[in-house]
């Protein structure tokens, strides 16, 4: 009997040894990181002053997801440290979970409720996706923007399978332009003229006639003036005639004033219409009744009805697509350069 026990013990021990020694040689179940994985975009030139997300900028090839991205050595082009990017952290408004902005909010507070304050640097990398984000709402005065050579940075990409380094990616931001369409020169950050004029004025007209001669008015005859009047939360629309005298907005008699912008507390006077709004405009790239179809810009339509030649009725409209990225008391003035529109019936 003693032999048997000995034998069994010996056998079991040998078997366990064998199994355990075999297991040691198996590769671990670790993530894969492909040496061929690469950034498909190495040059990032966002316009400052707006939230920009660079997506699909990394091809993971055969790597397993999720990956861990870390931005390293964000530095000026000449190699100097860049504390304006690495050290400056600002509290800014970001969107929070719990429902995206839909354009159906009924008060300013409801919109603001969908945002919260988070601390961010101007230029960040998203931890798992490798998306590069520039945030808005910060002091941008120290940031070296184009035509400066900007900054360089490295990225470490890792997962449990290993890590890859990617060196000397470029960050060359463009100067902030507070609104679009704009009259700014992106190189200098200065306006090129007082008004936004044709062909970049973002205006389209239909059936609008000149008061002067009854001819159809061209888009080139309207200039747009963006003016920031304060640091509040309002948006004002004004119409000016060729002599910069205000035109009564009520003349645009078929305009849907309450639904013109996603603003509240509308004050329609003889000279202007004012809304309390949330910035930026548009709030998100989501198509709403206040935006164009692609949701890239807000869209306003000022329209009026008049009887034209031979008693035909016309709906005349001025459509304007725009965006304002900076919070403030903004005023948008449309100046009819040559002649006011004709509002009266023929």
């Amino acid at each position: 009997m003693r032999y048997l026990y000995l034998l069994i013990c010996f056998g079991v021990a040998g078997l366990l040894l064998l199994i355990s020694s075999c297991k040691k040689d198996f590769p671990e179940d670790r993530d894969s990181i492909d040496p061929l994985a690469t950034f498909t975009r190495t040059f990032y030139d966002p316009t400052l002053g707006r939230n920009t997300v660079f997506s699909d900028n990394f091809n993971g090839a055969n790597s397993s997801q999720p990956l861990e991205f870390t931005m390293l050595n964000l530095r000026r082009y000449n190699g100097d440290p860049a504390p304006e990017l690495t050290d400056s952290i600002y509290p800014i408004w970001v969107w929070k979970d719990g429902g995206a902005y839909t354009g159906k909010e009924t008060s300013l507070a409801e919109i603001e409720n969908k945002r919260k304050i988070e601390n961010h640097r101007v230029f960040e990398i998203r931890q798992h996706s490798g998306q590069l984000v520039t945030w808005s709402g910060m002091d941008l005065s120290h940031i070296r923007s184009q035509p400066d050579s900007g900054y360089k940075f490295d990225v470490k990409v890792s997962n449990s399978g290993g890590l890859n380094y990617y060196y000397n990616l470029r960050f060359m931001p463009r100067k902030a332009i507070p609104y679009a369409p704009s009259n700014y020169n992106p190189e200098t950050g200065m306006t090129t003229g007082p008004a936004v004029s044709y062909p970049t004025n973002g205006i389209s007209l239909s059936n609008v006639q000149r008061l002067k001669d009854g001819l159809g008015m061209q888009e080139s005859e309207v200039d747009v003036y963006f003016t920031k009047k304060g640091t509040g939360n309002s948006l004002t629309f004004k119409f000016l005639d060729s002599a910069f005298a205000p035109i009564n907005p009520r003349l645009f008699n078929t305009t849907d004033w309450p639904g013109l912008v996603h603003g509240f507390d509308m004050k329609l006077t003889d000279t202007a219409v004012v809304y309390q709004v949330a910035y930026p405009i548009p709030l998100g790239p989501i198509p709403t009744k206040y935006t164009n179809a692609a949701a890239t810009r807000a869209a306003v339509t000022f329209s009026y009805y008049r009887k034209g030649t031979a008693g035909f009725g016309y709906v005349c409209a001025l459509v304007f697509n725009y965006a304002i990225y900076e919070k403030g008391d903004w005023e948008i003035a449309f100046q009819f350069r040559n002649s006011s529109p004709k509002f009266s019936n023929d």
Binding site: N51, V94, W95, K96, D97, G98, G99, W135
Partner: peptide
């Protein structure tokens, strides 16, 4: 609908 996460930078759900 409010359970759908939103991109904090772009407001895209």
């Amino acid at each position: 609908n409010t359970d759908v996460p939103v991109d904090p930078a772009t407001n895209l759900p």
